[in-house]
Amino acid sequence: MHFLNARIATRSLAATGVAALLAACSGGTSLSPTTNALVRANLLAASGRSLPPGRHAVGGGWISAAAKSGSHVIYSGSYDDSTITIYPSKGINPPPIGTITTGLTDPERLFVDKNLELYTTDEGSPTSIVVYKPGKTSPSLTITNGVNYPTGIAVGADGTVYCANTGNTTVTEYPKGKTAPSLTVSLGNETPENLAVDGSNNLYIQYVGGSLGSGVIEVPPGKTSGTDLNLVIGSASALSVDKAGNIVIIDQGDSSLDVFPAGKTTPSKTLALGG
């Protein structure tokens, strides 16, 4: 919980800085981050001076021809600026090739499924899951039912959507295209933060809190409870699972990336990330 509080406090400070900057630029009139993003996108579109050929404003964002297919792109979410920025996956420090603002208030985590649809959790009001088809800047689906201050999100190979809800320490599951949860995993004292799903639809929940402070719980498909994997890790954060069942996880305690072989509680490989 301390981790969450620290994160929220940092966000609040950052948001204050953005608001102050906006106030200075607009003669004392403070705009919300969402309003600012929309105004900026519309001004850019109106002037045409800052948008390279092929870019055009769409629903409060813009997208280039290179980003239309949704292929070979990287999405980066900005909680404070209410945007998702799209970058090409090639090159170092490439300029953006699009932004998404419509449907966003406080975007949290992102996920791209096998159909290249983009999913984001949003902690705005109401808290939600927002889905975008590739190349689109307006949502194709918004889910609020069962969503409670969400963070991690993952989509299984069958299209099932999994959402980590910090507000009530649950993970809700939604069949593909549905807006009501079909299953809810309740964690109790652990707060779910990040999610991953393997090829057999086993769900991996990275949590904070509980008796271990942080860790990973594996939940078989269709079940509402799982088993703590008792991974030896300082402060678990983002995670992924490869086809061999190795769990790749960020340890915020020492800024490292650790690989845990299936069934093992200690990492076989570690990489210091810095930062």
């Binding site: 990287i74 420090n93 949290e108 996920f111 983009l118």
Partner: peptide, 19 residues
């Protein structure tokens, strides 16, 4: 790969074909 402008909050990245 990418060093966003100060003030951004890139909470996650998602390259294509994640699964």
């Amino acid at each position: 790969k990418i060093n966003p402008t100060l003030g951004e909050w890139p909470l996650a990245v998602a390259p294509d074909n994640v699964l």
